[in-house]
Design a protein around this nucleic acid. Structure first.
Length: 577
RNA sequence: GCACCCGUAGCUCAGUGGAUAGAGCACCGGACUUCUAAUCCGAUGGUCGCAGGUUCGAAUCCUGCCGGGUGCGCCA
């Protein structure tokens, strides 16, 4: 066990039990990183009141019973009753050695949960916007991280592939021709296709009539209409996959679970909720009213599950997803990586599912709220002309900007290599920018900042890995050949080794809290701690062979941790930059 | 009107009820015949929106207020 915080927790808890009786052995010892030592235990302050004694006396008694000599070099009571703990260099070195030998870099495998993750969810025949970009990137990072922690992740790309707009889209497809250039726009510039259809729908009464008739045919299961609908899906899949491949996102066609896949379940959902007395008819629509949900003028807010015209909306589909994921997929947690504005709606879906008993098997639905991406004006990101930004163009611009920097700094590399580096850096920068701020906050999109080589950015972390790889190339060995033994003498070595021990805990924390930005912050800290180490401690030019072997081992452990950490975020690390 | 989110350094953002609130950027001052300077070291910069409350201890928890954003019946 390499996590100092956990080791110290157990030791302090034992001391608490020994000092104050077994009923205190479960007390949280409140181990925290400290600015005066490596860690501090704050339990004494909280316990003082309960025990009716002075905090410093309580701390003294804990210290007296504390058995940590093998781990801790110095124990000191300070201030009102803080217990400062300074770890032994040898212990840190030994733990770092274990991390180096562990292919998982100190991340424990957890008891497997079934975790469906709903993320990305673009619409057929529509451009993905920066909001989709963020749920795609955050959802994918969570999928990768939870999978690595040992969970059974089931990716659910809930694409918008059903509804009334399809009448218009199908008629437009027929008008322009299935294999026309216009139809091919769906693969590259879907909004152009959509807007073409929309314009006709709004301006041409005859077209609008055809479109409405087509919706009826689609819902009625007309074979030719379904074939054309399938064609729209296929063309759109081509667009989605182009984006996913460029983004290096793990979603494939196998993960598609679009709205249409629940069509057959909707009628049953409504009947079940009506039979259970959860749904009732109001103003012609079948609705669920839940306690605690009121809107304007105190009127109860409905979750509409069947419209007054008999059709179904997203509320019904979302209920079908939660029932399916809970009962068929046997989900322990269901993650909805979806925009923050949909919070109220999702709460109503959860509440309805709970009342219906669908979550009784121990399923917890969780809304991973995605904040809006803003422009520098603080408004939702758009082009100067006010149009939504095309995602592919945005990625291409990031790659192009990265390419300019690479060309400037690495004229020695051939063009193909530079292009690949530019792609990894540009895409990595965009993804990292989405991941490094807490997901539920809005954040301001800024190319210059995300592509900077300084600061908490993707390129900075990638550069740190590229530099380390360069050390091994120059040294004529592979990172795997650097096995230590790790010894600690210099403060910079100590700081680096101690930071390495924090990887396992932070990955576990991301799995629990579903906050990838914590991993970003950790990796940035690790990279900074490494560059500082690298500045102060010669590695290849170390004074003797033992020191060199130890520093190479620390360097190898850092590289593996950085690359593994970035991979959990879905950010690649180029061999050179 | 009701609900949710947010308010921390000039800017962008972190912050597990614990000691003197942190990064990055920008600005200022240093370090390159380099182990990749695409870097590093240092300095400056704060009434944590305001006011109460709980607590030994509050940026963090509770209440009220101010300011900003979002949502609130047949779109998703």
């Amino acid at each position: 066990m390499a996590d100092p915080q956990e080791v110290l927790s157990h030791r302090v808890q034992s001391a608490l039990g020994a000092a104050f009786g077994p009923e205190y052995a479960e007390t949280d010892p409140v181990i925290r990183p400290s600015q005066f030592a490596d860690f501090q235990a704050n339990a004494a302050l909280a316990l003082a009141k309960r025990l009716g004694r002075k905090p410093r006396d309580v701390a003294a008694e804990i210290v007296e019973r504390l058995d940590v000599d093998d781990v801790v070099r110095e124990v000191e009571i300070s201030g009102p009753g803080f217990i400062n703990l300074t770890l032994r260099d040898e212990w840190i070195a030994a733990q770092a050695q274990q991390i180096l030998a562990d292919p998982r870099a100190g991340v424990a495998v957890q008891e497997a949960q079934n975790i469906p993750i709903d993320y990305s969810a673009p619409n057929v025949a529509k451009e993905m916007h920066v909001g989709h970009l963020r749920t795609t990137v955050v959802g994918d990072a969570l999928a990768r991280t939870l999978e690595f922690l040992g969970h059974n992740v089931i990716r659910q790309n809930h694409i918008g592939d059903w509804g009334t707009p399809f009448g218009m889209l199908i008629e437009h497809l027929l008008d322009v021709g299935e294999h026309s250039e216009q139809a091919d726009l769906l693969k590259s510039d879907p909004n152009a296709f959509y807007q073409g259809a929309r314009a006709k729908f709004d301006g041409d009464e005859e077209f609008a009539t055809r479109a409405r008739r087509r919706v009826v045919a689609l819902q009625g299961g007309d074979a030719e209409t379904l074939r054309l609908w399938g064609e729209l899906i296929e063309l759109s899949k081509s667009y989605f996959n182009k984006i996913y491949r460029k983004l290096d996102v793990t979603l494939t066609d196998a993960d598609l679970a679009g709205e249409s896949s629940y069509n057959d379940a909707l009628e049953g959902i409504c009947r079940e909720l009506e039979d259970k007395g959860i749904a009732e008819v109001s103003e012609g629509a079948l609705c669920v009213f839940l306690d605690g949900f009121t809107g304007r003028e105190g009127k109860p807010v409905p979750l509409i599950i069947r419209k007054s015209d008999g059709g179904y909306g997203y509320g019904t589909t979302d209920l079908a997803t939660i029932k399916y994921r809970a009962e068929v997929l046997k989900a322990d947690r269901i993650l909805y990586v979806i925009g923050a504005p949909q919070h109220l709606h999702l709460e109503m879906v959860y509440g309805t599912a709970r009342e219906a008993g669908w979550l009784d098997g121990g399923t917890t639905p969780i809304h991973v709220q995605i904040g809006n991406v803003l422009g520098s004006d603080g408004k939702i990101l758009r082009t100067r002309s006010g149009a939504p930004i095309r995602l592919m163009a945005l990625l291409d611009e990031a790659i192009e900007r990265a390419g300019r920097v690479v060309a400037e700094n690495r004229p020695d590399l051939d063009e193909a290599t530079r292009a690949e580096i530019a792609r990894e850096v540009g895409v990595g920068a965009v993804k990292y920018a989405d991941l490094s701020v807490s997901h539920d906050n809005e954040y301001v999109f800024d190319f210059d900042r995300m592509l900077a080589l300084n600061g908490n950015t993707g390129p900075y972390l990638q550069y740190a890995t590229a530099r380390i790889r360069s050390i091994f190339r120059k040294g004529g060995l592979t990172p795997e050949e650097a096995t230590g033994p790790i010894r600690i003498a210099e403060p910079a070595e100590r700081a680096l080794a101690l930071t390495l021990l924090g990887f396992g805990p932070v990955v576990e924390q991301v799995g629990d809290s579903l906050e990838p930005h914590r991993l970003c912050a950790y990796l940035f800290d690790l990279a900074q701690t490494f560059t500082s180490f690298y500045e102060h401690c010669p590695v290849l030019k170390a004074e003797d062979a033992d020191v060199r072997a130890s520093r190479l081992a620390l360097t190898a452990a850092t590289l593996r941790t950085l690359v593994l950490g970035l991979s959990l975020l879905g950010v690649s690390a180029p061999e050179q930059m």
